[in-house]
Design a protein around this nucleic acid. Structure first.
Lengths: 272, 272
DNA sequence: GCAAAAGTGTTAAGTGTACACCCATGC
DNA sequence: GCATGGGTGTACACTTAACACTTTTGC
């Protein structure tokens, strides 16, 4: 790592790092903002994300996205994966590149910095096992604290991308378990979109896509009629160059796939 | 710029550069592949792009995307702008970030390399003024030569993105002049999409979007009824963080805007 | 029985597509 | 007049959204 004063550094290429916007429906329960967030229904009905408190200037004390530097020999996806694991101890169930930010003004007086930003989704089950370190804390996506650099805008962009993508892809499955009822899947869509959806039309739309299959079993949720349990069909193996969402199989110790191409869909309209 | 052998370099962060996929309908006429491309209608009916011949290993002699290194003090967009101007002497009429490629395998034996890739559109008028240097040559997008690194896949991705985006945004205007007939605009769509469109439905669709306004003048194209001349409305000034397409005003000597937010459109479905 | 949620059916409105048709010009 | 492309009208298929209705459970 080269050192030098600011004027020397301006002659060189800027630092390049990888950051991750990690999104989940809910947050760990061993966390401080519990008292402010109401009951557990309020938790799982909103999007939450972990942030890291900065321990140096600039933006000392503000909150920032988890991230790390670039290294040779590993891919950008693996770098994002590592940044996610080192801060939250969780495995993402979806990971895709968001955008690369490099405007000199974004560092606000610090040294120039290029950030290759990924966004990740983690399932509700993984959140419970999350160990919360001293400088890592979860926040509701709609009640963010003071953020360092341009990270607030980056998070807004990730949320916008999630809202768009949930309408034409199967990423909602990353928030729930392998088996789920249509009501559970619908509540995910409602939490992300921020509005209620017609259960009848949601059913027809999601089943009509052919992505789901009935497992044959039913579960009783409340004091109502039992609901059929569905799962996503396998063989979403149409991965191609036109689907930059990453296959993390090679990056995971257990070798399980966490991301099938989520968007070779013809309805996809390009990132932005 | 640090030097060292390969094993030393593997300890350090990889090199980071900016590359550009430059697309146009047509190519300069002072160019060698003229004899192979047929008449001028064949030229303007297809997408062309300029490539640079590599003069060093790896991939010596193959063709590659124009690009350059990163510098502090300028934005990524400005770096892409500079790479475009230095190779083709042209001003882009549209410029947007495509994707950042960083897989270690993509260098194929060379040193690890991260490429922040942009894609650009240039108008037909600018192409004629293009000076073609010795190592720069234009190729049809559907007849590419041997390409270095993973640049073929990058170009395919850019073309896929263009085909998607032309259906819900106004980027087709970047290929034509400020004033145009609906037939001219339709021929752009047909060239990009690779299929013919119903003139009546195209008219209704494009006029129904409210983006065009009639200039009141007409032109006679062939031996047919005169066609009304349209232009895009001004005040596409809803630029926001959700529209990463770049405003190049600050990067242009004449100060004219070349890109208004081309996609705060609700139909946008995220990049990929 | 009653409440609540699962699941089905129906209908009106909107959208995309194919194609028939008229209009204005050059020849 | 005739051919050509500009421009309008229209019918049909399909999708979307709203909502009434039936079914199956807990209480």
């Amino acid at each position: 790592m080269p050192f030098g004063n600011v004027s020397e550094r301006l002659q060189q290429p800027p630092d390049v790092g990888v950051s991750v916007v990690i999104l989940a429906l809910g947050a760990p329960e061993n966390e401080e903002s519990r008292d402010a967030s109401g009951d557990s229904k309020d938790r799982t009905g909103r999007l939450w994300l972990p942030l890291v408190r900065r321990v140096r200037q600039p933006f000392l004390g503000d909150w920032a996205l988890p991230g790390g530097g670039l290294q040779c020999g590993i891919s950008l996806e693996q770098a994002a994966f590592a940044a996610l694991e080192s801060t939250t101890d969780m495995h993402p169930r979806y990971l895709e590149q968001l955008y690369t930010f490099g405007d000199p003004k974004r560092s606000s007086g610090g040294l120039p910095m290029v950030s290759i930003v990924y966004w990740a989704l983690v399932g509700s089950a993984e959140i419970r096992t999350c160990t919360e370190g001293g400088n890592v804390q979860w926040f509701p996506a709609d009640e963010l604290p003071a953020l360092a650099f341009d990270h607030r805008g980056i998070i807004e962009y990730a949320l916008w991308r999630l809202r768009n993508k949930i309408e034409y892809s199967t990423i909602a499955a990353r928030f729930v378990g392998e088996r789920f009822t249509l009501a559970q899947l619908r509540s995910v869509h409602e939490a992300v979109l921020g509005r209620s959806l017609d259960p009848a039309n949601f059913r027809r739309h999601i089943l009509g896509s052919g992505e789901l299959e009935d497992t044959g079993t039913t579960v009783i949720q409340g004091r109502s009629r039992p609901a059929s349990v569905y799962r996503y069909r396998r063989a979403e193996t149409t991965s191609s160059l036109f689907s930059p969402s990453v296959d993390l199989a090679h990056a995971r110790a257990d070798g399980s796939r966490v991301s099938q191409s989520a968007m070779t869909n013809a309805h996809n309209k390009g990132v932005s």
